[in-house]
C-alpha cells in the first residue's frame, strides 16, 4: 500500500494532501492545470522532494521529513509514464522496454500484452503517438514496479486512441495488482479508470467516491466500494 502526506510549497500556494492507494487500486488525481497534480506524482516517483510530510510503501519509508529520509527515484522501483513520449530515441522499441530489464522473455511478453510485438525492431520516431504510449507503458512495467504512476498518459493522443488505450489500461489493471496513481484532466477518464478520485481544486483538495459508468463491470468490486481510504489510514 502506498501512503503519502505530501507538503510542497509552490510560488502561490502550498500543496498539502493525504493520499492512500492500496494494492490493485487506481487513484485518479484530477483538477485544473496548476493545482499540483504533476508535482504530486513526481514527488511520489522521487523526482521532486517534498517540503514536508511522509511517503511510505508497505510501511517502508520513501520520504520522511522528521528523520530526514529520502529514497532516490532509482531505488523506489516505480513505473512512470510521462504525459508525452519519453522513449529513448537511440533505442528500438524492444530496447526501450528492456532498458533495465535483462529478461528478454518478459520484454516479449509485455510487448505482446500491449499489442506492439510487431514494433519491437522499430525506432521510436517510426511509430505513432498511441504506439509510443503503449511502449512507454510496457517500459514502465518491465522493471516489475511496486507502484505505477501515470501522468496524463493519454492527453496527447486523439480521441479514439485515447478511448482504446483507456480500455487497455483497465484490462492491465486487473493483471497488475499494484497501486496505480493516475493524473488526468479528464473527469470521465478518472471515473472510468479510478477506484477513487482525488479532486484538486486550488488549495482545496477533496476525496470523492468513484463515479463509474453504469455498464462498466469493475474487476475489483471490493476496492471500488472502499470509502475515501486516506481518512481510514492517517499517517
Amino acid at each position: 500500500m502506498l501512503e503519502a502526506r505530501i507538503i510542497k510549497k509552490r510560488k502561490h500556494c502550498t500543496i498539502d494532501i493525504d493520499l492512500c492507494c492500496k494494492r490493485g487500486q487506481l487513484v485518479a488525481l484530477t483538477g485544473p492545470s496548476g493545482t499540483g497534480k504533476t508535482t504530486i506524482i513526481r514527488t511520489l516517483a522521487g523526482l521532486e522532494k517534498p517540503d514536508g510530510g511522509r511517503i511510505t510503501f508497505n510501511d517502508s519509508p520513501w520520504y520522511d521529513e522528521k528523520v530526514n529520509c529520502w529514497l532516490p527515484a532509482r531505488k523506489r522501483r516505480v513505473g512512470y509514464v510521462f504525459q508525452e513520449h519519453t522513449l529513448f530515441p537511440h533505442l528500438k522499441v524492444a530496447g526501450n522496454v528492456g532498458f533495465n530489464c535483462k529478461d528478454t522473455g518478459r520484454v516479449k511478453e509485455l510487448l505482446a500484452l500491449l499489442g506492439i510485438s510487431h514494433l519491437a525492431e522499430s525506432m521510436p520516431h517510426q511509430i505513432s503517438g498511441g504506439e509510443k504510449q503503449r511502449a512507454a507503458l510496457a517500459q514502465a512495467l518491465a522493471s516489475d514496479p511496486q507502484v505505477l504512476l501515470l501522468d496524463e498518459p493519454f492527453s496527447a493522443l486523439d480521441h479514439n486512441t485515447r478511448l482504446r488505450l483507456r480500455r487497455e489500461l483497465k484490462r492491465l489493471q486487473a493483471h497488475l495488482e499494484i497501486p496505480i496513481v493516475l493524473v488526468t484532466h479528464d473527469r470521465e477518464e478518472a471515473s472510468f479508470l479510478g477506484d477513487l478520485r482525488l479532486e484538486l481544486s486550488g488549495d482545496d483538495i477533496r476525496n470523492e467516491e468513484p463515479a463509474l459508468p453504469k455498464d462498466y463491470i469493475c474487476p475489483f468490486p471490493v476496492l471500488v466500494r472502499q470509502p475515501a481510504p486516506c481518512a481510514s489510514h492517517p499517517l
Binding site: 516517483a45 522521487g46 523526482l47 532516490p72 527515484a73 532509482r74 531505488k75 523506489r76 522501483r77 516505480v78 513505473g79 512512470y80 510521462f82 508525452e84 519519453t86 529513448f88 530515441p89 537511440h90 532498458f99 533495465n100 517500459q139 514502465a140 522493471s143
Partner: peptide
Amino acid sequence: DKRLLEMASVLGASPAAIFFRVIVPN
C-alpha cells in the same frame, strides 16, 4: 530532454549508467 534522464532514473539506472546509456548515445 531532461525527462529522458528522469525516466532512466525512475527505471533504476545509476548516475553512471545514465551517463553511458542515455547521455553519451544521445
